[in-house]
Amino acid sequence: MGTSEKHPVSRIIILGANGQVGSSIYSYLKRHFPALQITACVRRLFTNTHSPDYTVFDPFAHNWQQTGKADVLINCIGIIQETKDFTFEQAHLGLTRLILQHRQTLGNPKIIQISALGAQSDSPAAFLSSKGRADELLLTHPDTVVIRPSIVCTPNTVFAQKLTLLRRISRYLWNYLPFPGHLLQTRIQPIMPDDLASLVARLCFTDQHPAIIYAVGPDEISLQELIHLSSNSISLLSVPRIVADPGIRLLAALLPDLLNPQQYALLLHPNTASKQIAENLIGRSLHSTKGFWQQLS
């Protein structure tokens, strides 16, 4: 990867650096670009956080001057479930406003925002709607780029946790698993974390890219195939939508860890896109994710 004339890069700030995606990007940059000065901002330190690069910085509460100036800011902060104290609106649109408000304090860095595939301001899913509005706001400013990844195959990704939970439930049902039939053919296009991190790294050093980049892997996988990849012992029982919809509302109330209404809304539509721009930028083919799902079994 070469540097561009417009973006000589010596210092990078990562917001959300100990999240699933942020930690992957941080680790990749440290391995491949050891000369870079990286400030890995986290809202709180965990017991396994040892790197001297990590600094406690809450963008919603702390003084932005403490981060210092940088050439690139990578925003990896995002939530997939709201709490009473932290809404989609605050986590996505509110944070984007704060970044832009304090951009000059940070030295006017290039901003790389990790969004989500399917993000649209008019989406019926509040998660995607808030992401879409945040992206639209960011892209009204120069030297900004939005990456919209599909599911990122990190070890503790929520999707992997859900599949593990489904497998456990099926064991109590003699390996049968009732599942909404209208969701079985929904297709997703997951991406490996190193592929996403490689794309982010490339964008740090080049200006030759579109404003929005889709980060997807090479495999379009249906939910039915994904369940069987993670456990070939499961026998799926297709549940008609007329039964599934009220059943899911009840399930969300009883077992919110399994599926909540926002997650259900996300599964109603395909989560796929073209991988061509991402592959062109990183200069190689993207890696299949099928092995990742198989090792969950």
Rank of each mutant, 00 (worst) to 15 (best):
F86D: 12
S123L: 06
K162V: 13
T157C: 15
D122G: 02
R187E: 11
A134K: 01
L166M: 14
I99Q: 02
D85K: 15
P180R: 00
R171T: 15
A126C: 11
Q104E: 15
L196S: 08
L196I: 05
I114P: 00
L199G: 03
L98I: 13
A119I: 01
Q81D: 09
Q161T: 11
L173Q: 11
L196W: 12
K162I: 14
S115I: 02
L93E: 04
F179V: 10
G94H: 08
I79C: 02
D195I: 06
K162A: 00
M192L: 15
L177V: 12
T154R: 08
R97H: 14
A134V: 08
A91F: 03
I169H: 05
A125E: 02
S121G: 11
L199C: 10
D85C: 00
Q104C: 10
L106R: 05
T157G: 15
Q113M: 04
N108R: 07
F86T: 10
P180T: 08
P124C: 12
A125M: 07
Y172T: 13
Q189F: 09
A197Q: 07
P180F: 02
D195C: 08
D194Y: 07
T186C: 12
P193I: 06
Q113E: 07
V158C: 00
A91M: 06
Y172H: 11
A197T: 03
A119N: 02
T157R: 08
